[in-house]
Design a protein around this nucleic acid. Structure first.
Lengths: 224, 224
DNA sequence: CGCTCTATTGATAAACCTCAAATACAGTGG
DNA sequence: CCACTGTATTTGAGGTTTATCAATAGAGCG
């Protein structure tokens, strides 16, 4: 099933309108690990994910990475860059085979004028997102690593989790390095922490795979 | 001089319209250290700062604080809460005597319908802001404390600095604790770092007062 | 001048990172 | 099916950064 039609940006629009909007965009398919766009590219398009999953990340000069967030189908990105027509300071890398539709600035502006709901929806989406970044900024400022890792797992569980026989499994190939980048630490610390939790029976781990067997324990740990 | 009329939210509107919009709002004066609103209050209004300065901050259970950003005159806040009519997860505390105008949700919605430019402006403002938080999130994830402090000073210099005889002075009463909350560290580390920079001749400090005498040094340090 | 709040500084401890080496895992081609 | 290869992960030792605690000094205010 294609969830694109439930995309938040198009809330309130009729199916006909959505079809017509999608028609104005350019389809594109990205292979796993390939980049949809890179930071410091001139950002010419904004994109809607139709299928698959992208990670948005920033890299610093030394190649260290911080993951901004993960994007699933129905989610929108790079609107920032397109509106300001500046450089987009993050890279979008496919985690699996991913289909997107892109619109350039002119098209987008035209569409927003024609369907003001798009602008209003975008406003609401951004409000939620700013909340989320602020929350994570807050956590990274005030909490210790283990706590942040716990929160990250829970967040990923909620946004990308599915029921498994032994708990809730996170359906993203998730390396220790990714988690480290996501929480602002190193893969070693992540590894140690996850090992400890596995010994406690809170999670089960494998190569790039995590199953949360005791979410409650994680929650109460993250709030301690 | 009142800079409210140049508020970004009202860009593109005529003076008459702005006057009428301001007229719909409720004026309010806040004393230093008083709160305009607190996190977990029901957020009933969004606000424009007419004069003075607010800090937006989040507190965790243990009383540890993270400063989200500073708000000067002409800046807008709490739009998030009003649009989602939820709780606003941050507190706004006056750093000096501050005047604001507030609108409740109904009024705001009406105004946005009547003047669509408000919505579009808000969109652009949010885009910039989200960029800013993401940048800081990134910094706090990847950089060491001293570097983050340098960036914070430079940021404050740009947004709240004015020319002084011996350099550029930051016009906010800025305690070591505030800087610590802003950069995710402790007042002790801030104090040590600032002392070192003062010995190097990069800055001059006093009680809640900082003058940057050698911005260039700070910049190159922050990028090292 | 005494009171309160802020800042400095040293000593110490804790958290975390770095480096190195060993091990586990998944996919590939024979 | 198996060995091989490249990557991911684990774990230990040791070092660095940063937080914590405690004590002292300074600044502003009534």
């Amino acid at each position: 099933m294609d969830t694109t039609d439930q995309a938040d940006v198009f809330k309130g629009l009729t199916e006909d309108h959505i079809r017509s909007i999608l028609g104005e965009g350019r389809h594109k398919r990205i292979a796993p690990r390939e980049a949809l766009f890179r930071q410091d590219d001139a950002a010419s398009h904004c994109y809607l994910v139709r299928q698959g999953r992208l990670k948005l990340a920033k890299l610093n000069e030394h190649g260290k990475e911080a993951i901004i967030r993960y994007l699933g189908s129905g989610q929108f990105t790079a609107a920032v860059a397109v509106m300001k027509d500046g450089l987009y300071p993050v890279s979008a890398i496919a985690m699996e085979k991913t289909d997107v539709i892109g619109w350039n600035k002119e098209t987008m502006t035209t569409l927003m004028r024609r369907y003001p709901d798009i602008a209003i929806n975008m406003l609401n989406i951004l409000l939620v997102r700013i909340d989320d970044v602020q929350q994570r900024y807050f956590e990274v400022c005030t909490e210790q690593v283990a706590q942040r890792i716990a929160r990250a797992l829970l967040r990923l569980m909620r946004t990308a989790g599915s029921k498994a026989p032994d708990g809730i499994s996170i359906d993203i190939p998730l390396s220790r390095q990714s988690i480290a980048d996501y929480t602002g630490t190193t893969l070693y610390t992540v590894s140690r922490t996850l090992s400890a939790w596995e010994r406690s029976g809170w999670i089960k781990t494998g190569r790039e795979r995590i199953v949360i067997t005791d979410p409650h324990a994680l929650v109460s740990f993250s709030e301690a």
